[in-house]
Amino acid sequence: MNRIALCIAIMLVIAAASLGTLFLLEHSTDKVCTLVEQVIDAEKSGSPEQVEQAVTELEDYWQLHLKRLYCLVQSSVLNDISCAVARLRPLYEQGADDFIAECCGIRRLVSQIMDTQAPSLYSVL
């Protein structure tokens, strides 16, 4: 009976951890998407200071949450996002045309994390 109780406890811990993970991922990905939106808005407003500030904010947030995300998501996906985030500043400084495209790319990659982790019929199957 102890074994059953232990297994029930393990299953509850797994369920709780899974829900916690989903909550954490949703919070992190939503925040990154919001920060990317801020970068796009700042670029559209034409203010270099605002862009600079928005990119810095995005980089800082990403660096802060990256280690935690490594425990939950395959690192190849996160590495792609890290590279894209690191490219933003030089792209803007060079006045590259594909700055906005890069931002949209980051947003897409980040939302893909949530799409693949959230339990839905298609992600389960």
Partner: peptide
């Protein structure tokens, strides 16, 4: 590149289901 939790969760899920 695969988080270790991706190995731990299915192992314990299988064991618990078996029990």
């Amino acid at each position: 590149s695969i988080p270790m939790i991706m190995g731990i969760v299915p192992i314990f899920t299988f064991v618990c289901l078996d029990v």
